[in-house]
Every structure is written in C-alpha cells, then in structure tokens.
C-alpha cells in the first residue's frame, strides 16, 4: 500500500492504495469520478484519457504512483460551472457523440490536440491525431467536425482574452 497525493480537478486528494492501482481505478472507484471510462486493456481505445499536468494521458495504463503529486484534470473538471468547455459544446452542437462512452476520452484528447496545434488544424491532422481514440458509433465524421469547430471557438476565445 502507498499513500499518494495529487490535485484532481483543482481539489487536493490523498489516498492509500495498493501499489498496482491504476489511475483510472483511483478516479472511478475511490473518487467516484466515473466519467473516465475503460474501453480496452491495451491502451488502444482512449476512453480513459485524462490530463496529467496539462497533457492527454491514458489513465488505464498509468499507475497511481506515476501520477503522485501531479495535477489531474478529468472530463468532470473542464466546464466552468454550467458553462461548457468549447470542446464539450462543439461535440453537442455537431452531434459528435452517440452512446457517449468514448466521448470523455475523445474530448480530453481533442482539447490536447487543439492546445498543441493552436487553431491551425485541418481534417487530415485531426484524423491522424485521433489515432489513439476509438469510437464505434459515429464513424468519426462528426467528431472531426466537432474538433475543427471547437478549434476555431477556442481560437476566438483565446483572442478575446
């Protein structure tokens, strides 16, 4: 057992967990943040993606110890109160989700993509960058649309700041 401490969605968290505990299980089972999902056992599908110190990481293959002291953001932590993050709003407005299971990971991954590329995204780049996120429902068509839409919304928001 190890004692860990980290910041999750802006709140300090400490927990005593088995050394083999994965970050996703800490989030889901100990902190009740069930928006982060597990879709595979092999780091392929990306349903489990969260931000660790601002970077998209697959929490199903991150031991809690590796995230000790880190700043974690999950899907539950990106909207400001009732105000959706532009990526969340873009997914809703472009029908970028159906069953919703891959969606939190998609959104967390997509935010990271936009951060890394700024607003200069095109369809091909988005498709390549989403390589690590599998969706079985949407055929990606509207997810790509959502990410491109959010990229321009985020650019506008940034310019306004």
């Amino acid at each position: 057992m190890s004692k860990i401490s980290m910041t999750v969605n802006g709140k300090a968290v400490t927990a005593e967990v088995e050394d083999r505990t994965l970050l996703v299980h800490l989030l889901r089972d100990h902190l009740n943040l069930t928006g982060t999902h597990v879709g595979c056992d092999t780091s392929q599908c990306g349903a489990c993606i969260v931000h660790i110190d601002g970077r998209a990481v697959k929490s199903c293959t991150t031991l809690v110890g590796q995230a000790n002291g880190a700043n974690i953001t999950t899907i539950e932590g990106i909207s400001k109160g009732d105000e959706l993050h532009p990526m969340q709003a873009a997914f809703r407005d472009n029908h970028g989700l159906q069953c919703g299971y891959c969606t939190p990971g998609m959104i967390m991954s997509a935010i990271d993509i936009v951060h890394r590329h700024g607003g200069d995204l095109d369809e091909e780049t988005v498709r390549q960058e989403l390589e690590g996120n599998i969706c079985r429902c949407t055929g990606y068509h509207n997810i790509v649309k959502s990410v491109l839409d959010a990229a321009s919304r985020m650019k506008v928001a940034q310019a306004a700041e």
């Binding site: 889901r28 069930t34 999950t74 539950e76 909207s79 959706l84 809703r92 299971y101 969606t103």
Partner: peptide
C-alpha cells in the same frame, strides 16, 4: 435538434453499469 441527452455524456455524468 441537438440531443437532450448529450449534456450528461459530455460532462462525464453518464451512468453506465460499471459506474
């Protein structure tokens, strides 16, 4: 019409069996 159910899915509030 945009979907009524989307808000819970995009905010991590969906409730699946394992949740």
């Amino acid at each position: 019409v945009v979907r009524k159910e989307d808000r819970r899915f995009i905010t991590g509030k969906g409730r699946y069996v394992d949740d």
